[in-house]
């Protein structure tokens, strides 16, 4: 299904007509097991989208195809109108929590600067590069932690550092793989509020295992279970979610301004 379901007023405009991300008839299989089948997606510039779906449904694979880490068996992936490998500098990425050694001896600033490592030769970063890292950390609300060892931070703070690392190169598209997976609900909500500000100036595609409390913030939801469908958030119903997850799922919308809300989705 291909649809530009842009909701006016919620997306930041980049003034470009071509989609930020476009998948055409994309299929992908791991060792012969199909993960994605014939996926068609058009994500306009400035959209804040959430990718949801059951485990093993292909959410992370979709992100990796957009990043160019995986190549589709069939079909074509275009990011900013080009193959992903050509535009890596314009994509920011925050992987799932458990992909690095939390005891690795680096400071918060060191981690943020890694977002510029590909541009840099030699031992020291330039003052401009350090300024960019400071700005990214400030934007994520952790500027004052920049000298601290990364291993000292809480799960939520680390996640913010990793998002700052993705933002430091000032990307046009930000991909987040379950950014709230390892933090508590209150921290997750604060993180989403910060991301809402970031979304004003770039396209964001975020995988989430618990979509309930972000529905009020994103303009569209991409439901992925081998196939992918885009829905405007307002059109997402309990029936659609049941169909997607294949079990009894209820849609409960949370008020993000409220500190103590229930959250249960399955």
């Amino acid at each position: 299904m291909s649809a530009d379901t842009r909701t006016p007023g919620t997306d930041a405009s980049h003034g470009a007509d071509r989609p930020a991300v476009c998948l055409q008839n994309v299929s992908f299989a791991y060792n012969g097991h199909p993960v994605l089948r014939n996926v068609n997606l058009d994500i306009p510039p400035g959209a804040f989208s959430c990718v949801i779906g059951p485990n093993g449904g292909g959410k992370s694979t979709l992100l990796k195809l957009i990043l160019g880490l995986l190549t589709p068996a069939e079909g074509e992936v275009r990011v900013c109108g080009e193959p992903p490998a050509n535009v890596r500098g314009r994509i920011g990425y925050t992987p799932q929590f458990a992909q690095y050694d939390p005891q690795f001896p680096v400071s918060v600033m060191d981690v943020a600067l890694m977002g510029l490592a590909e541009r840099h030769w030699g031992g020291r970063y330039t003052p401009e590069e350090k300024d960019a890292a400071r700005r990214a950390l400030d934007e994520m609300g952790i500027g004052e932690l920049r000298r601290r060892p990364f291993s000292d931070l809480s799960g939520g703070q680390r996640q913010r550092v990793l998002i700052a690392r993705a933002l430091v190169s000032n990307p046009e598209i930000l991909l987040l793989d379950e950014p709230a997976a390892s933090v508590d609900l209150a921290a997750a909500k604060r993180l989403m509020h910060t991301l809402q500000d970031v979304a004003k100036r770039m396209t964001i595609i975020m995988v989430s295992h618990d979509p309930a409390f972000i529905f009020d913030m994103v303009s569209r939801v991409i439901c992925v279970n081998q196939h992918a469908h885009i829905h405007p958030t307002s059109e997402l119903t309990t029936a659609r979610l049941r169909e997607l997850y294949g079990e009894d799922v209820r849609l409960i919308r949370h008020d993000l301004s409220d500190q103590e809300t229930d959250h249960a989705h399955a």
Binding site: R88, Y93, Q99, Y100, F104, M114, E118, G123, R165
Partner: peptide, 22 residues
Amino acid sequence: VFFYNKLLAVCFDEEFARTRGL
């Protein structure tokens, strides 16, 4: 020294380094 920052990025998080084109 010449490759320090790149080696650091690759050692810390291989997947992220790959997405930066390293």
